[in-house]
Simulated assay, not measured.
Amino acid sequence: MTDRRIDALDVLRGVAIMGTLGTNIWIFTDPGGPAAVFDALAQPGAVESFLRFLTNGKFLALLTLLFGVGLELQYRSARRRGTPWPGWYLWRAALLFAEGLIHYFLIFEFDVLMGYAITSMIVAYLIGRSDRAVRAWMIGVGSTFVVAIGLLTAVLLAQQDTAADPASAPGTLFSQGSYGEQVAARFELFGLYRLEAVFIIPMGVVLFLLGSRLTRAGVFEDSGRGAALRRRLMILGLGVGAPLNLLTSFAGEGWFLVDRYLLPPLVALGLLGLVTAIVHRMSGAPGPLRRGLTAVGRTALSCYVFQNLAGAVLCYGWGLGLAARLDGLRPWWVPVAWAVICVLFMTLASLWLRRHDRGPLELVWQWAYRAPQRSRREGERASASR
């Protein structure tokens, strides 16, 4: 790996983290909180629909592709060292699941880390197989996923023609409830809030494997081969996927699943190609934006958790309660809240990295990952000395 290639990955991670906040900020700023997601999915106004279109599902898919890239790099590292695979990688995945579980209960209902952890355990056993086998898995899982989305979309479209029940009054748990009450609700509604994993895991299997294979195909290389591949991704994602995704964003609630899970991965491929191409064309010292994105990319786990914590503090009733106070200014104040949180964690990440080489949660995670390995080595040395 070249330095430039590492730079591209850090910038991409930073873009993906900021983009996921662009989706989640609509949840935080709704007075009904995460519970409002399970309402009738009523079509918002034109301005809000367009703003949601800019982020909905796209950066979740981009982050998923990048997890696949990271898994490929871990696999390569294990092969170079001659260590068993998946071996200790499964412990990494278990720690990620534990991190996601804590994040879910204490901070945010729609955590993605648990889904990524389960997906990584599955893909860890596939990534080293032949290209033919990997293609078969991608086609099989991807086709099943597309068919399932299609059937569910048909059901949603059919239900649009039936009389809808009167809308219920919005809940007050997130606008007026205490922090403890919200945590208790996450325990009580665990199955409901974790329902998205049904879509994230199969989508993740395909995108993890695709991220791995794109890395092998040279998508991050500063070469003619890499540039050609990036151009094809931009044409597919931004030339084909984005216009179709814009249509589904305004097509009504019946197209929600297509709009969230089917078309955004295509757009994410275009974003992957575009951001990488821009990084390769940059010369000279990086500016403030690139430095901030790189810092976020290097502290991605910490920034992901921090942005959700910041959103909760700003918007929920036990914090500043801005979701209820500024509901009359929706959707205009929502992008402002997103920008404030992004600038905040970009600044904090940059300051933190002046003294540390990893983010705070990354340091804790690295210690937890290495602790059992150290204990095992010490035990082996003690046994050998007897």
Score class of each variant (00 low, 15 high):
292 G>A: 14
280 H>L: 14
275 V>Q: 08
311 G>A: 05
285 A>C: 05
307 Q>L: 12
291 R>N: 11
267 V>L: 09
253 E>D: 13
293 L>Q: 02
259 D>P: 06
252 G>P: 08
258 V>G: 08
264 P>R: 02
270 G>L: 12
292 G>C: 08
306 F>C: 09
308 N>D: 10
260 R>H: 14
317 G>T: 11
283 S>D: 14
269 L>R: 05
291 R>E: 15
292 G>K: 06
311 G>F: 00
288 P>W: 15
310 A>D: 00
317 G>M: 12
277 A>F: 09
275 V>G: 06
282 M>C: 09
296 V>T: 12
313 V>P: 03
253 E>W: 11
266 L>R: 04
318 W>Q: 06
274 L>D: 06
270 G>Y: 12
317 G>N: 10
306 F>L: 15
273 G>Y: 11
278 I>V: 15
264 P>H: 05
291 R>G: 04
290 R>G: 06
303 C>W: 02
296 V>E: 00
277 A>Q: 15
265 P>C: 11
255 W>L: 14
275 V>D: 09
300 A>S: 15
265 P>I: 03
258 V>M: 03
311 G>D: 01
270 G>V: 12
285 A>W: 06
253 E>I: 07
305 V>T: 07
294 T>Q: 12
273 G>Q: 13
300 A>D: 01
289 L>A: 14
285 A>N: 08
250 F>G: 08
247 L>T: 10
311 G>T: 02
310 A>T: 01
289 L>Y: 08
259 D>C: 12
273 G>T: 08
268 A>P: 11
251 A>R: 06
310 A>F: 03
289 L>P: 03
277 A>E: 15
315 C>R: 01
248 T>R: 02
276 T>D: 12
320 L>H: 08
286 P>F: 09
271 L>G: 04
257 L>W: 06
279 V>L: 10
294 T>H: 07
276 T>I: 11
261 Y>E: 01
249 S>Y: 01
276 T>C: 11
310 A>Y: 00
317 G>P: 07
251 A>K: 11
255 W>P: 04
292 G>F: 03
249 S>R: 03
320 L>I: 01
288 P>E: 06
264 P>W: 04
264 P>S: 06
304 Y>W: 12
258 V>F: 02
320 L>S: 09
272 L>A: 07
320 L>Y: 08
249 S>M: 14
278 I>D: 10
283 S>N: 13
255 W>G: 07
317 G>A: 13
317 G>Y: 13
322 L>S: 05
279 V>Y: 10
312 A>P: 10
284 G>L: 04
250 F>D: 10
259 D>L: 09
304 Y>D: 01
272 L>H: 09
251 A>M: 13
279 V>Q: 09
314 L>M: 15
270 G>H: 12
309 L>K: 03
302 S>A: 10
301 L>D: 03
283 S>P: 06
280 H>D: 10
274 L>W: 15
290 R>E: 14
261 Y>N: 07
321 G>L: 10
302 S>W: 02
294 T>I: 13
295 A>H: 10
322 L>E: 01
321 G>T: 02
255 W>Y: 15
277 A>C: 08
291 R>I: 06
306 F>T: 12
310 A>P: 00
251 A>W: 13
313 V>H: 00
259 D>G: 10
258 V>Y: 01
257 L>Q: 09
304 Y>H: 11
302 S>C: 06
